[in-house]
């Protein structure tokens, strides 16, 4: 496999530091998320679990800058996402975060390659560097898809999620975030996707945050944090 073996140059490693983060939603007394302190070393992987409604989504929205509301500090390499404008967070996310979600969000009429390259295409005006296409094809081979021209609509669910993994990793993000990436897959496909996600993130040297109940991740990610009622109950703390 000719995937980028470590590619450290283009992927600045990112370290996360959260301090006194409080996210409240209007109409609710208790904060949806309260994290006094949490750090993640560059290249480190973190598995977040917890019952639904425990604040997993709020946590992921905060660390990816999808939602900039709240108080406190959510800083990647010193850049605090809280209080940053929506456009600034969008630009930052486009340059630093690769996202994989439970739903694949592929466009069925576009080819696998076009789907992988779409976010980059829409992130900037003008033409894409030609090397990006070579890179996309290489990544697709790496995730086990060797027909980049195939229409995304004709893929199996497992193949779709592998396409989504390739899309998340295309611009060599320093941070990879996955939200229940195996929840809509059968065990075999889920296993393969988990393997790829953890392996490729490690290869890139990217920090990895996965929210999942799937035991398949517990076996592969050492650090485990459990959310309940908006607070981390285990594995929290400023270790490392």
């Amino acid at each position: 496999m000719s995937a980028p073996k470590s590619a450290p140059k283009s992927a600045p490693k990112s370290a996360l530091a959260i301090r006194d983060l409080v996210v409240r939603y209007p109409g609710l007394d208790a904060p949806a998320l309260e994290v006094p302190a949490l750090t993640l070393a560059a290249g480190e992987a973190l598995l977040v679990s917890g019952p639904s409604g425990a604040g997993k989504t709020t946590f992921l929205n905060a660390v990816t800058g999808l939602d900039g509301r709240g108080q406190g500090v959510v800083a990647w390499d010193g850049i605090n996402l809280i209080g940053l404008s929506e456009g600034a967070r969008d630009r930052w996310r486009a340059g630093h975060v690769g996202l994989v979600m439970q739903d694949f969000h592929l466009f069925p009429a576009l080819s696998v390659r076009e789907n992988v390259m779409l976010p980059q295409r829409l992130a900037r005006w003008g033409r894409l560097p030609p090397a990006l296409r070579t890179e996309a094809d290489a990544l697709l081979v790496r995730v086990g898809l060797d027909r980049p021209q195939q229409r995304a609509g004709t893929l199996s669910r497992g193949q779709k999620q592998r396409t989504a993994v390739a899309r998340a990793l295309l611009c060599r993000p320093g941070i990879v975030v996955a939200d229940e990436p195996t929840a809509s897959l059968d065990p075999v496909a889920g296993h393969a996707v988990a393997e790829l996600l953890v392996g490729l993130a490690a290869n890139l040297g990217a920090s990895l945050i996965v929210a999942s109940h799937d035991p398949v991740f517990a076996a592969r990610i050492a650090r485990h944090a459990r959310l309940e009622g908006g607070r981390f109950v285990t594995g929290e703390g400023d270790a490392a």
Partner: peptide
């Protein structure tokens, strides 16, 4: 999703 993946607003 497009925005989340990095598409500009």
């Amino acid at each position: 999703a497009l925005r989340a993946f990095g598409a500009a607003r």
